[in-house]
Design a binder for these strands. Structure first.
Lengths: 276, 276
DNA sequence: TACCGGTTTGTAGTAATATTACATAATGAA
DNA sequence: TTCATTATGTAATATTACTACAAACCGGTA
């Protein structure tokens, strides 16, 4: 939740940002406050606070507080810690793994059931899937391709933006695009999605809450993680994206009933399990 | 908090016990309820619910709910659960994410510091790195390539077994191979590693404990996860492998001192963060 | 610059919810 | 039974969250 607030903060309206700042500054306090006191602290009106909560996918202030409280409670178990040069390997490994675990916990608590259901419906309605991801997200797109093409419809991943553009232009209304981007701000992916939409294709995005990419998609599966401590690339969001896509694929498979699940299980055992 | 309720339950007044019972019966629900609905469910009056909260050392109902919510959040016991066809999307997502989290916890607790240190030393001693992974592990190898080539030495990932063979044959004693395989039993990867060793290259494997691949490697970074509930491909081991390689790369970076860390952080912000 | 359409924000009122004060009912001991 | 004590509910009140609407703001156009 806190990560979500931080991620969404810049896309919020001016006065909602003030609210975000107050909450970020002292979440422990906010969780015990009433709308009134938060509104006063942020020097905005009370409805603004409510609008802020709604912008974060909460039905109201109460739910917002609850989610935030749970978020804070969990930070005790696994939390982000920056690595330092005098950490031993063991300490280092623990810090990094704790951070990764914490981000998955966060994602778990942010899953938007509604969007997920709609994403599953989009897959069921489509005839083929194209996965677009560049840079680090290319890896995620490829991984997802492996999953999706076992579900019975053609699935292909492209990582080169030019090829993405070309391919997107050739789609039709029976195509489903899954666009993967950590920030959701890369002009390449936005352009690609725009082209895809002109071709009438449906678009699911796997990206940050309220990012430009999320806003131009039919369905947005959001992945917000605290990236502060990632040194190389956003590993945590990568993990999150992979898991979210796994959830989507399994969700589709499950709709296919026991029969499909069993078949997939057999396929998995035959192909990957022994040899990869 | 829940434990507290259970413990205190018998010392409470009759009608307060009714409240305790409905809370214990479904804490997740209670946390989202108003006094009214809890009072109705327990067939007591609203003030009784408040008295119940006070008996548990809370100043009011709100605080009670907050504490309970945090308690529920903290019961962060994540375990594997098989998905079933009648799971809602939400339940499904939670099961899958819990499974993924549990596997990372397991990996964290299994990290072998000694092997990790030796792996770091091997990287420091080498002149170039080749990453081999096929099928699902190809994705991991590519991801790792992105990390390693920022560390200052050439790094390249191959996913095609034939090309792996050819490339391995051209290595020398200054090359480091990182071989990634879930099972560590694929004949392709074993053959590749055998060739690499004949070329005098060093080999780090990221694979299952005591697998054939682990046994023929100079250093084995082991990733063992419970795969029973993975439908498509071993997502969990994929996540684990990625994190373990992140640990290795960060470990190397940290040995480079503050200077290197800072440089990498800058590079990350410039490249990925805004655009991917 | 003045005006228009749309968006953002605040004001004021309403509904819901928690809390208090008090009255009634239950319980138990003499 | 009767009184004292405790437990529980009723009804009023205060607080808090939320809604509808109006004012202010902003960016573009004439």
């Amino acid at each position: 939740m806190l990560a979500k607030i931080k991620a969404a903060r810049d896309t919020l309206r001016k006065s909602e940002q003030k609210v975000a700042d107050v909450v970020i500054a002292d979440p422990e306090q906010s969780v015990q406050s009433s709308i009134q006191s938060i509104a006063t602290l942020a020097s905005v009106s009370e409805p603004t606070v409510i609008r802020f909560c709604r912008a974060l996918d909460c039905v109201g202030f109460q739910q917002f507080k609850l989610k935030l409280a749970q978020d804070l409670a969990r930070r005790g178990t696994f939390f982000y810690q920056d690595v330092t040069v005098d950490d031993s390997s063991k300490v280092l490994a623990n810090k990094l793994l704790d951070g990764a675990i914490a981000s998955l916990v966060q994602i778990r608590d942010q899953i938007n059931e509604d969007q997920l259901d709609r994403a599953i419906a989009l897959y069921e309605a489509c005839e083929r899937v194209e996965l677009y991801g560049s840079g680090g997200s290319a890896v995620v797109a490829e991984d997802a391709q492996l999953k999706f093409f076992r579900l019975g419809k053609p699935a292909i991943a492209y990582s080169d933006p030019h090829i993405q553009h070309a391919s997107a232009a050739l789609l039709d209304k029976n195509a489903l695009v899954i666009a993967i981007s950590h920030s959701g701000r890369s002009s390449d992916i936005l352009k690609t999605v725009e082209i895809a939409r002109q071709s009438q294709a449906k678009v699911i995005s796997v990206t940050a809450t309220r990012s430009p990419l999320a806003q131009v998609s039919d369905v947005a599966l959001t992945v917000d993680v605290n990236e502060d401590s990632d040194i190389f690339s956003p590993v945590k969001s990568r993990l999150g994206q992979m898991v979210v896509l796994d959830v989507l694929a399994v969700g589709v498979a499950v709709r296919g009933g026991d029969h499909m699940l069993e078949q997939l299980a057999r396929a998995r055992r035959a192909i990957d399990f022994k040899f990869v």
